[in-house]
């Protein structure tokens, strides 16, 4: 019986990648309350507060309601947070529990590893962003000036933060350290990057300072694509976002390719 069944089967070079991608998607779907529903509820509460209540009394951008102004930022916040959370938590938990060994002993290549983690994280981030967008229709109508550019910017933001999640998961030594990346880096940068206000209304010093916040380019670019108005030209936002994404991809690739903190 063993003799008959124990015949080697054909090796399919892309299967390790496809399997890891499928496993990563299953992982976040398995805990969908935490990974999908919670961020959607949080974003909906923001929409309610800034769309249906306070938003009625605030105006920050000529020709647009505050709800219209804030919705792109909230969508992108969901995309960014969830893309980062997916790669960072998955890879870190694998390191922490030791089951990363299951991958280290397989023929999966570093590019396959990065791509599978990244695509799963992008899927989660964009899923959350899409649902937030659908919910936003109850609060305001958006002009969708350049829908293709908006989709591209959302995809680039999710890619960028998926890479950052991988980097954070490698450097973090504890859950506490991992949460610091989120609470003391990503969250402040998002809040100060123009989700809730246009950077142009800040005093000149603070407005200039905001230009070194990478989040500003992503949020402004995404808003510009949806509303047709932004603090920066779309091309500038895309160029800076693209360069940041490329730099983080190289960083993540170097870490995972070398096995830094993964292989003993």
């Amino acid at each position: 019986m063993i003799d008959r069944l124990h015949q080697p089967r054909r090796f399919i070079s892309w299967l390790p990648f496809a399997t890891l991608l499928q496993k990563e998607v299953r992982r976040f779907l398995k805990v969908a309350f935490q990974t999908l529903l919670t961020p959607i509820v949080t974003a909906s509460l923001y929409l309610f507060v800034f769309g249906a209540t306070l938003g009625q009394r605030i105006s920050v951008l000529e020709g647009f309601s505050y709800a219209q102004f804030v919705i792109p930022g909230l969508i992108l916040m969901g995309v960014i947070n969830n893309s980062f959370a997916n790669t960072s938590s998955s890879l870190f938990i694998s390191r922490y529990l030791g089951n990363i060994v299951d991958l280290l002993v397989t023929p999966i290549t570093p590019p396959q590893l990065i791509l599978a983690y990244t695509l799963a994280a992008m899927l989660r981030g964009l899923l959350v962003g899409s649902v937030v967008l659908l919910i936003s229709f109850f609060f305001a109508e958006l002009p969708f000036a350049s829908p293709g550019a908006a989709a591209a910017m959302a995809a680039m933001a999710s890619f960028l933060f998926a890479q950052f999640g991988l980097v954070a998961a490698i450097y973090a030594n504890s859950f506490d350290a991992l949460s610091m990346f989120n609470n003391f880096l990503i969250l402040p940068l998002i809040y100060l990057g123009g989700v809730f206000y246009p950077v142009s209304i800040l005093p000149p010093f603070w407005a200039r300072l905001s230009h070194i916040n990478p989040m500003f380019y992503l949020i402004d670019g995404f808003r510009h694509a949806l509303l047709g108005v932004g603090d920066l030209p779309l091309g500038t936002a895309f160029t800076v976002a693209g360069l940041m994404a490329a730099a983080l991809f190289v960083w993540a690739s170097l870490l995972l390719g070398s096995g830094y903190r993964l292989r003993l």
């Binding site: 069944l5 124990h6 089967r9 054909r10 090796f11 399919i12 070079s13 299967l15 390790p16 496809a18 399997t19 890891l20 499928q22 496993k23 299953r26 992982r27 398995k30 805990v31 529990l97 030791g98 089951n99 060994v101 299951d102 991958l103 397989t106 023929p107 999966i108």
Partner: peptide, 28 residues
């Protein structure tokens, strides 16, 4: 002892086979 808490034995074995680039062999 290293396991992935998210999955059952059956699914984990299928996943592990895929990691090696080997299509799932149900009989094996």
């Amino acid at each position: 002892v290293v396991t992935d808490h998210f999955f059952t034995i059956d699914l984990a074995l299928k996943i592990h086979s895929g990691y090696y680039g080997v299509p799932d062999d149900r009989a094996w």
